[in-house]
């Protein structure tokens, strides 16, 4: 029987991994951290709510719709905000602030939609829980009556990772994308449509956020500020992953997500329940430690060098030990 803590942690990590890989994708192409990523996900949180509460269907059937909805919102961010600013050669600081503006705008739209739902269907649209819409399944060896998110969340992350890897390494467009990431000007010279590459990256990033939002809506408490609350965790995962590596972001999502739910959960069990209150402090710790110890994230660390250093350290101490032993003898 899997503990509910593990299930929650896996589901949460999947959400964070999806969101942080989206942030990383747009960071790699347009070189701007997207502060609206959380709210892009909130759009799909409300899609999940509408599907489950108003239409009485399973939110999982609408994964494609969620991908499209939030993806379009991401595309809107690119076309209406990023592209005009990039054309004006705006600085990094300006671009960052502009994503904050889009975040605020989306936040107001989501709230208006939530009010509309309340007025029209007389449903509670703030602090809602639609866990009932999740299916249950039995898995041999893991237990019975497990929530569907435990299966769908990691599965989606896995499938998307494979698809993304194939896209980036096996298709012409993927190669063009990587070329644009490496050197936009040169990519433009050889005839790559940089604008299209950027647009696709923002759409895909938004789409990832959409899937994350759909899953978050199913198992977290939904609220219009859910995405805003998740933002530090998203960035923590991206920074742990190195901010310029999508696979790093996925791994980072699972590291920070697990620490946030499972880590604090077990500490609460064995040390003090007070710790649970400081759950949202965990991403901050990850950001600080990563930036102080390895600013380029886990994918930026030269593991080979570290292994060599460790080996030489071990061999030298062992050698000294042996010499001492021989001297004693």
């Amino acid at each position: 029987m899997v503990s509910p803590l593990v299930i929650n942690s896996i589901a949460y990590s999947s959400v964070i991994a999806l969101l942080s890989s989206g942030v990383t994708l747009t960071y790699m192409t347009t070189r701007v951290p997207n502060f609206a990523q959380g709210t892009l996900a909130t759009i799909s949180v409300y899609l999940a709510f509408t599907v489950a509460k108003v239409w009485n269907e399973s939110p999982y059937l609408y994964q494609g719709v969620a991908f499209g909805f939030s993806g379009l919102a991401g595309l809107g961010l690119y076309y209406f905000v990023m592209r005009p600013l990039l054309k004006r050669a705006a600085s990094l600081v300006t671009l960052m602030i502009a994503t904050v503006g889009y975040d605020l705008f989306l936040f107001s739209i989501i709230n208006i939609y939530a009010d509309y739902l309340t007025d029209t269907y007389a449903v509670q649209t703030r602090k809602f829980n639609i866990g009932f819409s999740d299916f249950r399944f039995n898995a041999f060896g893991l237990g019975s009556n497990l929530p569907g998110i435990f299966l769908v969340g990691p599965l989606t992350v896995g499938i998307l990772t494979v698809v993304l890897h194939l896209l980036l390494t096996r298709t012409k467009f993927g190669v063009a994308m990587r070329a644009t990431v490496e050197n936009p000007a040169l990519a433009g010279v050889v005839g790559i449509n940089i604008d299209l590459v950027y647009a696709v990256s923002w759409f895909v990033s938004g789409g990832f956020a959409g899937l994350a939002g759909l899953f978050a809506g199913v198992f977290l408490t939904g609220n219009p500020d859910l995405g805003i609350v998740l933002l530090p965790s998203i960035f923590a995962a991206s920074i742990v992953g190195g901010l310029t590596n999508i696979y790093g972001a996925l791994v980072g999502g699972f590291i920070t997500g697990t620490a946030e739910i499972l880590g604090t959960g077990y500490l609460a069990l064995y040390v003090s329940t007070e710790i649970l209150k400081y759950q949202s402090f965990v991403p901050l710790v990850f950001i600080v430690v990563t930036l102080l110890v390895a600013p380029s994230g886990i994918t930026g660390v030269d593991w080979v060098r570290w292994r060599r250093r460790l080996e030489s350290l071990l061999s030298s101490t062992l050698g000294a030990f042996e010499r001492r032993l021989s001297r004693v003898n």
Partner: peptide
Amino acid sequence: PFNAVWLDPMLLGIVLIVMLIFRA
């Protein structure tokens, strides 16, 4: 057609983006 409370974040966002693009 909506609660005026949300006019505030909406304006914040629009003003920020419009200013940055057209009159930085």
